[in-house]
Lab assay of single mutants.
Amino acid sequence: TEYKLVVVGAGGVGKSALTIQLIQNHFVDEYDPTIEDSYRKQVVIDGETCLLDILDTAGQEEYSAMRDQYMRTGEGFLCVFAINNTKSFEDIHQYREQIKRVKDSDDVPMVLVGNKCDLAARTVESRQAQDLARSYGIPYIETSAKTRQGVEDAFYTLVREIRQH
């Protein structure tokens, strides 16, 4: 089974770092803004072998026109913010609204991801993020692309959301 996953969120929150940590098991430290990259990885989730087709997208506003296209083809979405960047957390709402509009559905598989949880300088409390996820009816997972904490959990949870859909 193949799953088309799309990673969305503001610029600099760590979308590529999360994806590369999942696929290649290493942490990319330097920031190089993405336009669009796709990665494929075969994994076993709950005993089922599946192929993850992951689209890593641009957070930069100037590429926002490309969003409709990949939102149409994606089956599930990782909505990523950084726990030390309140603005990126506030941006999640717009991504969710755009996904709902493009998919013409209120019920699209999504996982809210709070990345950079290895950093002490948190400005978005776990509780705020949990409340937001609960209001959307989606899971919330904290990750660190640096330490790998929660990385597999985030992507695998999204696959489970798609399966249950």
Rank of each mutant, 00 (worst) to 15 (best):
S144L: 03
D46M: 09
T1I: 09
D106P: 10
Q21A: 15
Q128G: 06
R160H: 12
G150T: 14
Q42T: 13
Y95L: 15
N84F: 01
V6P: 00
V108Q: 05
K87T: 07
T73A: 11
C79Y: 11
V159D: 01
G76E: 02
R122G: 12
M71T: 08
E75C: 09
T73M: 07
E97Y: 07
Y39A: 04
K116Y: 13
A145H: 02
T19Y: 03
F81Y: 08
S135I: 14
R67G: 09
R72F: 01
E36S: 05
C50W: 07
R127G: 11
L22S: 14
D131I: 03
E142I: 05
I162F: 12
I141Q: 06
S16V: 01
I92A: 06
R148N: 10
T49L: 10
K116D: 04
A17F: 00
E152G: 08
I35G: 01
Q164A: 08
A17Y: 10
I99Y: 01
V80C: 12
P139M: 02
N115A: 14
M110P: 00
E2H: 06
K4T: 08
T157Y: 12
D29E: 12
I23E: 09
T73H: 13
E30T: 08
R96N: 13
H93P: 12
E48G: 07
G11Q: 08
G137S: 08
C50R: 07
N115Y: 00
R40W: 06
V6Q: 04
E36F: 08
V43I: 10
L78V: 09
S64I: 15
K146W: 15
E36T: 06
E61P: 10
D131N: 03
I23R: 05
I45T: 12
D118H: 00
R134D: 11
P109S: 03
I162Y: 00
Y156F: 03
H165A: 14
F155R: 01
I83V: 14
L51V: 14
A145T: 05
E36D: 13
L78M: 14
V124W: 05
T1Q: 07
V159H: 01
R134H: 12
K146C: 13
V102I: 10
S144F: 04
A154V: 14
C117H: 09
R96F: 09
E36V: 02
Y63N: 15
E90M: 10
I83L: 13
F81P: 01
D68K: 02
G150V: 08
E97R: 13
V102N: 14
R160F: 03
D53S: 04
I54A: 07
G76I: 11
L5V: 08
I45N: 09
A145S: 14
Y31V: 02
K116P: 00
L55E: 15
K146G: 15
C50A: 12
I20Y: 10
S126N: 07
V43M: 05
S38T: 14
I54N: 01
I99Q: 06
N84E: 15
G74I: 06
E142L: 03
D29H: 13
R96W: 15
V80K: 03
E48N: 06
D131G: 09
S126L: 10
Q130R: 09
D56E: 01
C117V: 09
A82G: 12
V113F: 00
I138T: 04
N25I: 03
A121W: 06
T1D: 11
P33K: 12
V151L: 14
V151M: 07
S38Q: 05
D56Y: 09
G59V: 03
G47D: 07
V44K: 15
L51K: 10
V7H: 01
E36P: 02
S16I: 02
K41N: 14
D68R: 03
T123Q: 10
I54W: 05
V113E: 00
D56C: 00
Y136P: 02
S144W: 01
V28R: 04
V151F: 12
Y63F: 05
G76W: 05
F89P: 01
P139Q: 08
V28F: 12
P109H: 08
D106T: 08
R101S: 03
D91H: 10
K87I: 07
E97G: 04
L22I: 08
L132E: 01
Q21F: 05
N85C: 11
G47K: 09
S105D: 12
S64W: 14
T19K: 04
Q130S: 10
L5M: 07
R72I: 03
G59K: 01
A10E: 04
K100Q: 08
V44G: 12
E2S: 04
T19I: 08
D29P: 13
D53H: 02
V108A: 06
T34A: 03
V159R: 01
A133R: 05
Y95W: 06
K116A: 14
A17T: 06
H26V: 09
T49K: 07
K87M: 11
A129S: 06
V108F: 15
Q69N: 14
A10N: 05
V113C: 05
C50D: 08
V6W: 02
K41F: 05
T1S: 13
V102D: 04
V108M: 03
V111T: 05
V159Y: 03
Y70I: 14
E2Y: 15
L18Q: 01
F155W: 09
M66Y: 01
C117N: 15
I141G: 01
D153Q: 12
G114I: 02
I138H: 02
K87V: 06
E62T: 04
V151E: 01
T34C: 00
D107Y: 07
Q149V: 07
G9K: 03
E125I: 15
A154E: 03
